[in-house]
């Protein structure tokens, strides 16, 4: 993320439980100020006159306590600390609970060109949502060449060289009722060093796909709204590559291959492509298998366990029949 301004924050298209419901009520000239940190500050201590360790470059959130204290300061005509607060270069102030700042505070904000935003949310709720939002905004990102689809609820990132058939595979998967997040360029985001979320590079151009011979297609129109998704956690990486007879592919499925994106390991499968191999079915199966693994069931391991058990019982039987023969 190169630059993120207050205006960008107001422009963010957040939905339902992530919505910040912010409006700007004063200091519009300050909307172009940059937000440089994902930290949030509650300015209770600075208002009481203690400015040590004041994190002035973070967004200042005024909850009920701060608002009541501001009111008290104004009633007592004790504006020194408020004036001092505005001497710092602060990105913006947010008033929670739908409260309005006092007139004097607004004047100071206008004078210093500091935006004052207002939200109907409670300060605790707002802080949580803002943390989450800023965490995502400042999350490390990487743009990669590939297709992101959701198959049986698993986010599958398909990568491979140009012309190996990524888009065609994704098209077949969508035809089978799965969902497209982005074709060709996928923007990956590392969310609090925990998981990777992938989305289209540009919301205007997402859900389009280029198929050789047909050109550019709008998948949302062709397959309906059920065939698309805006974002999805990446849970499985599928690498398509040209079939190489000399290469050893995973034949048992015990191997735990991993792909690393932005420092996070994602389970990976390598699928060799050759005419006659139905790649979408293989990917569907890989996604089902991944779901099973998440439930704690490892097909290959369980199979091996059954084989071992069977061998054991067979050898026991053999011993028994051997004994019978001798008697």
């Amino acid at each position: 993320m190169s630059e993120f301004t207050i205006l960008d924050l107001l422009d963010l298209d957040l939905k339902e439980h992530n919505h910040l419901s912010l409006i700007c009520i004063a200091g519009r000239t300050g909307l172009s100020k940059k937000i440089t940190t994902s930290k949030i500050s509650r300015p209770g201590l600075p208002l009481s006159g203690f400015f040590e360790e004041f994190s002035n470059n973070s967004i200042q959130v005024f909850g009920r306590g701060e608002q009541a204290y501001l009111q008290k300061l104004e009633d007592e005509h004790n504006l020194a600390s408020i004036e001092r607060l505005f001497k710092y270069d602060i990105p913006c102030c947010v008033f929670c609970d739908g409260a309005d700042p006092s007139p004097r505070f607004t004047v100071l904000a206008e004078e210093t060109g500091t935006a004052i935003l207002k939200t109907d949310l409670l300060s605790s709720d707002f802080s949580r949502r803002l943390y989450q939002t800023l965490d995502e905004v400042f999350a490390p990102t990487q743009t990669i060449h590939g297709v992101l689809v959701e198959v049986y609820g698993i986010g599958v990132l398909i990568t491979g060289e140009s012309g190996v058939g990524k888009s065609e595979t994704a098209l077949e998967l969508i035809e089978r009722g799965h969902r497209l997040i982005s074709d060709d360029t996928v923007r990956l985001r590392n969310i609090s060093d925990n998981f990777i979320v992938g989305m289209g590079e540009n919301p205007l151009l997402a859900h389009h796909m280029e198929i050789r011979g047909l050109g550019i297609l709008n998948l949302a129109n062709l397959f309906g709204v059920g065939a698309i998704r805006d974002r999805k956690q990446v849970q499985l990486s599928v690498k398509l590559e040209q079939w190489d007879a000399k290469k050893n592919y995973d034949r048992v499925g015990e191997g735990s291959l991993h792909d690393t994106f932005l420092g996070i390991d994602i389970p990976m499968v390598i699928i060799p492509v050759k005419p006659g191999r139905n790649i979408p079915v293989i990917i569907e199966t890989a996604a089902r298998n991944e779901r099973l693994k998440k439930l704690g069931y490892y097909s290959a391991k369980e199979f091996d366990q059954s084989v071992l058990k069977w061998l054991e019982s067979e050898s026991a039987r053999n011993m028994y029949s051997f004994n019978e023969e001798t008697h």
Partner: peptide, 18 residues
Amino acid sequence: KGTMKINGKSIMGIITLG
């Protein structure tokens, strides 16, 4: 372009550069 790096053999990628 800026922070974006895309594969030049992909039409959608190039368009996404804006």
